[in-house]
Design a protein around this nucleic acid. Structure first.
Lengths: 246, 246
DNA sequence: CTCTTGCGTATACGTCATAAACTCTACCTG
DNA sequence: CAGGTAGAGTTTATGACGTATACGCAAGAG
């Protein structure tokens, strides 16, 4: 990610013509797949040009640049490839709530498989073809029920914030575990204990301390469904009654 | 941020005893203030030990380590310092919705002043004293209305996701502007046009293309208030009627 | 059979965080 | 007051990491 105090804007990979390729053993798709695997295992921290190259076999990091333009370009391709995994109906159906839930739940499932997504997505413009297709679908659903385009975009953004926010929370928990080394369960306990003591310190934060002592409440999946429901209910209340205007 | 494949967990600055200091011209608070100013101007990208040191005057980057332990430690201190800016009632009042709105709106206002907050917060554990105090307040409000501790924590997390998610969206827009150089408004227009053309390409995404052509809908502040309302309404529906159990 | 064209490599540079060793000085102790 | 000591800030060095550049090579086109 080049800083850009006064220069040329860093080119987006989407504005590049698709590379004219001969048979090459290395293909853009292979690279993106490998990069996704690397990030799945090592998180955004582990996502390194060198790591991706190594995973692909006997390649140097520089070989990747021929195919993905830059690391940001690679990330853009990864984000779009993951978005492509989200199942999407061909067209909006009769039940708009079901359509929204399909997209949201599908996104949530996919994003949970690739937790780095939530951490990288907010750093890049959402201009990949699959990302745009997904947004377009949500817009179709909402505009089809009578929302204005501006409202539909608002609701789409609000749902995405919720999805990515939830994933980020899960990602942070995983990162914390990784930070302390998954390898020594004793150290994880020690870290948790330290945090607990911080919270308990001085008797401030009694509720927080009690919760850290014995975390309770629904799991993240349930939390996700719960607030998704809140949001969809809220949207429903603003949609014109009885479907789209004639 | 050290990778930690098998070693000692990176120590948190909160577990460190407060440094016993003599008069030194350089104080932890000065450093944190300077770092916040640097990040306000340059975003997370611009937040560099060297940049902070330079802003402080005739100091070398290494001088900071004496006071803030590591860059992660500095970030933790920055996050907590910004959290301290959020106005918080001393105790929950009679109107729990108003209390939640106070915290949420106050957080939103503060976070908008420091957009990097939304990008850095999800990468660090929320264990600073002011962060914990803020969470404790929200828990008090909700438990005071009859929520279980687990429910209260769920709702608190859900509200925070919304706040940080909204801020991240605004941060991304700013970052995009920065990427293309604020300095040349022509280039911003060019970038927007490029994105527009991507969306319009091939007649897929007609709605998205139309929106990018002429963005409409409420501003982010209104969007924030809107979905905050959705969420608080949802919470209200789950709270036991008529206040806390006797 | 050359000539172009694109692929992978080798090398090098700039930016960053940060470890290690050093210096200086203010204060404390005997 | 001599001498030690514990910070404070500096210097220097190291190791990731992204990526610019220049090169050699092979495969298809004429």
């Amino acid at each position: 990610m080049k800083e850009n105090p006064e220069g040329v804007p860093a080119p987006l990979i989407w504005t590049r013509p698709a590379p004219r390729r001969r048979h090459s053993p290395l293909e853009r798709d292979d690279i993106v797949r490998a990069a996704i695997a690397v990030a799945d295992e090592g998180g955004p921290q582990g996502l390194t040009m060198a790591a991706v190259a190594k995973r692909l076999g006997p390649y140097t990091p520089m070989a990747l640049y021929r195919h993905v333009l830059s690391k940001d370009g690679l990330v853009d391709l990864m984000l779009d490839a993951v978005t492509a995994e989200i199942p999407l109906p061909a067209a909006p159906g009769a039940d708009w709530r079901a359509d929204l839930h399909t997209v949201a739940d599908g996104s949530w499932a996919v994003v949970k498989r690739h937790l780095w997504f939530a951490q990288l997505a907010p750093t890049r413009p959402p201009l990949g073809p699959h990302m745009m297709r997904r947004t377009e679908f949500v817009l179709q659903v909402l505009v089809g029920r009578g929302a204005t385009l501006g409202e539909a975009m608002t609701y789409a953004a609000l749902l995405d914030r919720h999805i990515l926010g939830s994933a980020q929370q899960e990602a942070e928990e995983l990162a914390m575990r990784r930070r302390h080394g998954i390898h020594t369960p004793g150290q994880l306990a020690a870290a948790v204990t330290a945090a607990r003591e911080l919270a308990a310190e001085g008797g401030r934060h009694p509720l927080l301390a009690r919760w850290m002592e014995a975390p309770s409440g629904p799991g993240l999946d349930e939390q996700f469904a719960l607030s998704l429901g809140f949001l969809v209910d809220g949207i429903a209340a603003r949609l014109p009654r009885g479907g789209p205007p004639a």
